[in-house]
């Protein structure tokens, strides 16, 4: 009875929006293959295809190093935060103990704290132990877990039937066994969500690499892209085709990850909403 008529306007909005969302990607890929003089002709199909732009950016900057750095840092950050947050989340989900609610409130509270407040002292800590110009500060903080993922994983652990754990306890399983052999295998999708989200966050981060990394060969891709954009786009000869090739190299890996793990991205966002 609630038959919804889909008028012309409906399809115009939907298709118009789709074009708007997709067009910049096509524009970038197309422009990154154009010779310098044609970058801004704004044609979707290049008159002249010039794949050498990618060779140019390769030669102008240690792009391969940056790529490897980005992969290593993002994997370390994602693995660390997922493993440790799941341990802490299990602690909150399974046990009944004095101080639980207060501590969990504190965990949630830390999500409100702007990073700017702790940024300077945390930098001074890493500097004082001689790790300022290394990649360690980009991921090592994740070894202590992170509030959002603790919240997310706790939700999933709470959804597991308690009898499962009680039966295992009666059979003499240790708490660690409950976590590692029962909770973790059952919550694999949630762990993947956490891994993927942190992978994306770490891959995209600019502020931390700006603060910590001085030597260009230590840069991650976003930090490197910033350097390329400063050097080739905004000053000098305005070699935007090089900057564009760099943008594509920075963006494409995450898009591939997204297509492989779409389902988990969508689940992660859904959980984010439940926080409210």
């Amino acid at each position: 009875m609630l038959k919804q008529r889909k008028g012309v306007l409906f399809w115009v909005v939907l298709i118009g929006a789709s074009v708007l969302f997709l067009y910049p990607f096509l524009w970038v890929i197309s422009a990154s293959l154009k010779p310098r003089s044609q970058v801004f002709d704004n044609k979707l199909v290049p008159d002249q295809v010039r794949p050498e732009n990618y060779v140019d950016v390769w030669q102008a900057a240690p792009v391969l190093d940056w790529f490897v750095n980005s992969v290593v840092v993002a994997l370390a950050a994602a693995a660390a935060v997922t493993l440790v947050s799941s341990i802490v989340a299990f602690g909150f989900a399974y046990f009944r103990f004095p101080g639980r609610n207060a501590l969990f409130g504190l965990v949630l509270g830390t999500m409100m704290l702007p990073a700017a407040v702790t940024m300077i002292p945390v930098y001074l800590i890493w500097n004082s132990v001689g790790l300022a110009n290394t990649q360690v500060p980009l991921w090592a903080v994740n070894l202590f877990g992170s509030a959002f993922y603790i919240f997310l994983l706790r939700q999933f652990f709470l959804g597991l039937p308690r009898e499962l754990f009680e039966a295992a306890r009666i059979d003499g399983a240790s708490h660690w066994t409950l976590f590692w052999r029962i909770a973790v295998p059952l919550c694999r999708p949630a762990l993947i969500v956490s891994f993927i989200f942190e992978l994306k966050a770490s891959w995209s981060d600019l502020l931390k690499p700006l603060i910590y990394l001085r030597d260009p060969e230590l840069f991650t891709l976003p930090r490197g892209l910033k350097a390329i954009s400063d050097q080739f786009g905004q000053s000098g000869e305005q070699q935007w085709e090089v900057v564009l090739a760099g943008s594509v190299i920075t963006t494409v890996p995450m898009i591939i990850v997204f297509f492989l793990a779409q389902r988990y991205f969508m689940q992660g966002i859904a959980t984010q909403g439940r926080k409210g």
């Binding site: 939907l14 929006a17 789709s18 969302f21 997709l22 910049p24 990607f25 970038v28 422009a31 970058v39 801004f40 994306k200 891959w203 995209s204 600019l206 891709l221 976003p222 892209l225 910033k226 954009s229 786009g233 905004q234 935007w240 900057v243 564009l244 943008s247 920075t250 963006t251 995450m254 898009i255 990850v257 997204f258 779409q262 991205f265 969508m266």
Partner: peptide
Amino acid sequence: FRTLFYLPEVTPKVAVGVLFLM
């Protein structure tokens, strides 16, 4: 369409900044 609309969100903000300039 949801996938399509979400795609820009996996683009690093640095690339978004570069894109803005152009």
